[in-house]
Amino acid sequence: MEYRLEGESRRTVVVFHGGHMRAGLALGEEVFAEAGFTVLAPSRPGYGRTPLSTGTTPAGFADATAQLCRSLGIERLAAVVGISAGGRTALTMAARHPHLVERVILQSAVAFLPWPDRLTRLGGRAVFNAQIEAGTWAFMRSLVRLAPPVGLRLLLRSLSALSSCQVLAGLSPAERATLVGLFSQMRSGHGFVADMLPVPDCAAQVGQSALVIATRHDHSVPFAHAESLASVLPNAELVESRADSHMIWFGPDYPRIATTIRAFLAAG
């Protein structure tokens, strides 16, 4: 398993990033580091240097991550964080290892509803399968570097229910630069196609307190996923973001959300 471990605190959070991400790419982790937590970010199966065989299901990878924690001397996790397609793995780990996981934080997370929609599934298998994805991302890297507004608008179309022009207009120059840097390093490997497979629903088995954060403008993961989790998880709080897209960290109210996350962790 490929992973990144940053920080020296004895309090650790595991971050399961979403699709097209790997351990070497950080997104939304600053809130945990600034609060004094160590961050453990593994590459999920099929991403980075973690092969699909390292847990061919979320349950298998949750068990592998628990074993990694034991190998690193981590006896207790302050939280597991599930971002986007990493949400199901975070929930599965919380359900299977309650002795290890104290709390759950879900950000724009995929629930156990049918996902993605048929068009996205077909398109994803066509352009992000392991034989094609390198070329797909090479094209996108060239586009966002040579014509950033055009490349960002193209990528944001799948992430927001609003017009991509409107979303782009709401981003600061620094936020645009961050997205250009992020999109320039993404890869799908074998992971994204695997992310689209159905997963057994374990939400009702998660007894830990959970913070569910999402925006109604998310086109990639509809807000219904957050509502579903908030209604099924026994101890869940739903926090609605005002972000214009799937990327809640670039919303105008993210400082408020970051404060909520810190308070949620402190309560533990």
Rank of each mutant, 00 (worst) to 15 (best):
I213L: 14
L77R: 03
A26D: 12
E29Q: 10
L159T: 11
T260L: 13
P45T: 04
R157W: 00
G268L: 02
G36Q: 08
F37S: 00
W249V: 14
A258K: 05
S228H: 14
A41T: 15
L119D: 15
I261K: 02
P234V: 10
A85H: 01
R262N: 05
S188C: 08
H190E: 15
P234E: 11
H190W: 10
S84K: 05
Q67T: 09
L146K: 15
P173T: 07
A226I: 02
G46R: 01
M186P: 01
L229H: 06
S209V: 12
M140G: 05
S158F: 07
H219I: 08
L27E: 11
A147L: 12
L156I: 00
R44L: 11
R11V: 03
G123D: 08
V31H: 06
D117I: 04
L119Q: 15
V239Q: 11
Q208M: 12
R157F: 03
A177C: 06
R176P: 01
V101Y: 04
H217W: 08
D195R: 10
G151K: 06
P98M: 13
S164R: 04
V80T: 08
V167L: 01
S245D: 07
G73T: 04
A258N: 02
A226E: 11
L265K: 00
Y254H: 12
L91C: 11
L159N: 10
V193M: 11
L211F: 12
P198Y: 09
S209W: 10
L113K: 01
L162Y: 06
H17I: 00
P148F: 07
G28D: 02
S228L: 11
